[in-house]
Simulated scan of single mutants.
Amino acid sequence: MPFVRLSGRISGKDDPSREVRARMLYQLFANGWDIYNSNGDQRITLSNIERKIVESDAFVFMPDASLEDLFKAVSIFVGYQTLDVHLFGKATVILNTDHSWDAMFGLLDRLRELGTIRQNYRKFLLQASSTDEVLQSLDRVGDEGLPDIGREKIMDCNADTFEKEFDKPLIGKVCVFCSASIEDPAYLSEGYELGRLLAENDLGCVSGAGTTGVMGQVVQGSVDAGGWTGGSNVPHIIELEGLPEGMTSFWLRPDIYTRMEAMIENSDSFVIFPGGAGTVQEMLALLIFKQMGSPLMAGKPVIIYNKPLPEGGGFWDQLVAMLEPWAGSGYYSVADTLDEVLEMSKAAVV
């Protein structure tokens, strides 16, 4: 029988989510599904999430979305975007009866408006208002499959991990999470400027090691200014986005989750630059590490660059709104200018 992975955790017999979960469990089981995480007692981490995806045939997310649930749902959509073969034909349905997922949907809608998400994500993250609708969505994807994501490979991947000598002093390394798809010259020029500023201030630049969009420009800015530039990527994304020239260090990883771990391990601070679903995924991963008290994130600041928009407001207003429950945690800061980003980054290492 096919396996569906159910999200969410149950804290005890008085948990308000217990009743709707029991109803969902019954309907899934009665309709031929075996169920992972039926009791809500399994944890997903960066080190095991890819295995959990491989072993599952579909994904159902429950109400009362946690930070971990948001991360998993966005991660699955990023997997669809990057043609992860382990997600081919697998349905993802979100039961949003309590509207706890509204902030995430609002953020992704806004990123579509801004052009950093090109696909209609609602055709991949299927929203349901009842347990009956969940079953209907699973059946429909089983019969019809999922839409074409609209991306094609541009090269074969023959890359491997490397480390080159770098003889200039570094005071620290800053990881820049950003868009690989933005083509707006204003964003591209700021990405290049940030890479240049990091190099000129003896800060290494860690990235997702892609050639396209803002990501490519951040790398190029650092390389052109003679800076240390490192990054991590996976074979199937390299085939979509290429691999930059001039990097000092590169860490090839098998999946996007161990890729994030490599970037986190090799960085002293993090900048959330304008981006799309992948950047949201990376931000949520950082917050989960912070929440868990992981030594990988100890003393490492996370800076959201909320780039002011010509029409008013900031690029990441909806992200900041979604993260409001964690606003007082000290997990992240918000900057409105590149100068602020640079100063916050330097403060972390000097």
Rank of each mutant, 00 (worst) to 15 (best):
S269L: 05
W251N: 12
L284F: 14
A277Y: 07
G221R: 06
V223P: 01
T258W: 10
T248Q: 06
L198C: 14
M260Y: 11
N233H: 14
T229K: 00
Y257H: 14
G216Q: 08
G195N: 08
N233M: 08
V271W: 01
H236T: 13
G275R: 03
P235L: 12
G227F: 01
S249V: 11
L198D: 04
S222P: 03
E200G: 07
S207D: 10
G227H: 05
D202Y: 11
A277P: 05
S232E: 02
Q217M: 15
Q220A: 15
G242N: 11
L252N: 07
G276P: 07
A199C: 07
P254C: 07
G230Y: 01
S249E: 15
M247K: 05
I256M: 15
I264Q: 12
S249M: 10
V280E: 01
T248V: 06
S267N: 10
N266G: 00
L243N: 10
M263S: 15
F270D: 09
V223R: 07
S249I: 00
L197F: 02
M215P: 06
Q220G: 03
G275C: 00
Y257E: 00
G242C: 09
P244L: 10
G226A: 11
V214M: 08
T248K: 04
L286T: 09
T229M: 02
G210T: 14
L243P: 04
A199E: 08
P235Q: 12
M263F: 03
P235I: 12
G275V: 01
E200D: 13
V223F: 03
Q217I: 06
G195R: 01
T248F: 02
G278L: 02
G210W: 06
S249T: 14
E261P: 00
L240D: 03
R196A: 13
A285I: 03
A262Q: 10
T279W: 08
G227Y: 02
I237R: 11
E200H: 06
T248C: 04
G231P: 08
I272S: 07
T248Y: 02
L287V: 12
A277C: 05
G246N: 09
N266A: 14
Q281C: 09
P235G: 12
W228G: 02
A277V: 04
S249K: 12
Q281H: 11
I238V: 15
G278W: 02
F270G: 00
R253L: 09
I272C: 12
G221K: 04
P235S: 13
V218W: 07
P235R: 12
Q281T: 11
T258M: 07
V214P: 06
M283S: 13
L240T: 09
A262V: 05
G226L: 12
I238Q: 04
Q217T: 12
E261A: 06
L284R: 06
L286W: 09
T248D: 09
